[in-house]
């Protein structure tokens, strides 16, 4: 995972709440077995509409998505994060994220920046009034900045640290291998295994 400290890019105002992961990427795009190339599925149903924001200049080149509350609800598909990142997004700003989406974003290096809804509204107005305004997201001081607007955002400290350092979760966990083995040695013996059962 690449380290993330600060990013500046075109902000995209998406005035919708409850943007679920079926909207971010419909199930028909989930059939691939690769980890890249999901950009064509991003918001697939909405992108068929020429008025959709990502079909407008300068938002086409957006990299900071500013969305309504309850972003990323529904399915656990990490493809939603891959699709956003493959398209070019580095940050999603919302006042509320679904838990699984937020977790998936943190694993992949997509910053899920939780701002107040009033700041989201201010960002929407600014980005609509002056399309193409650069938005800077700074993970070191946890702010979203655009023109004179400085909006603080929340992100949990551990995820922030991992993103700043670009650290791989699995390698971090494997440092505790001895504790995992110790735990395994003390599990109840009656807990089930998936080993095939003898034919009866």
């Amino acid at each position: 995972m690449d380290a993330f400290t600060t990013h500046t890019g075109v902000g995209v105002p998406l005035r919708r709440s409850n943007v679920d992961t079926d909207q971010i990427i419909p199930a028909v795009y989930l059939k691939r077995v690769t980890r890249t190339g999901f950009e064509d599925g991003l918001f697939a149903a909405w992108r068929g509409d020429e008025h959709f924001i990502l079909n407008q200049e300068p938002f086409k080149a957006g990299s900071v998505l500013v969305a309504g509350p309850d972003f990323g609800t529904g399915s656990s598909r990490e493809h939603a994060v891959w699709a956003l990142m493959d398209y070019g997004f580095r940050v999603v700003v919302s006042s509320r994220f679904a838990d699984i989406f937020r977790g998936n974003a943190g694993k992949q290096g997509l910053v899920a920046a939780q701002c107040s809804q009033s700041d989201v509204e201010l960002l929407w107005k600014l980005l609509e009034a002056e399309p193409g305004t650069p938005v800077t997201v700074d993970l070191t001081d946890k702010t979203v900045r655009a023109k004179d607007l400085v909006a603080p955002f929340e992100i949990d400290d551990y995820t922030r640290w991992r993103l700043l350092e670009g650290l791989d979760d699995i390698a971090l966990t494997l440092r505790h291998e001895a504790e995992i083995s110790g735990f395994e040695a003390n599990r109840q013996t009656w807990l089930p295994t998936t080993d095939p059962l003898p034919a009866v």
Partner: peptide
């Protein structure tokens, strides 16, 4: 609970998950 693909890989490799 449901998890994303990165977490699937994490469980495959470690049989654990870091969780708050």
């Amino acid at each position: 609970f449901g998890i994303g693909t990165s977490e699937v890989e994490h469980v495959m490799a470690t049989q654990t998950l870091p969780l708050r």
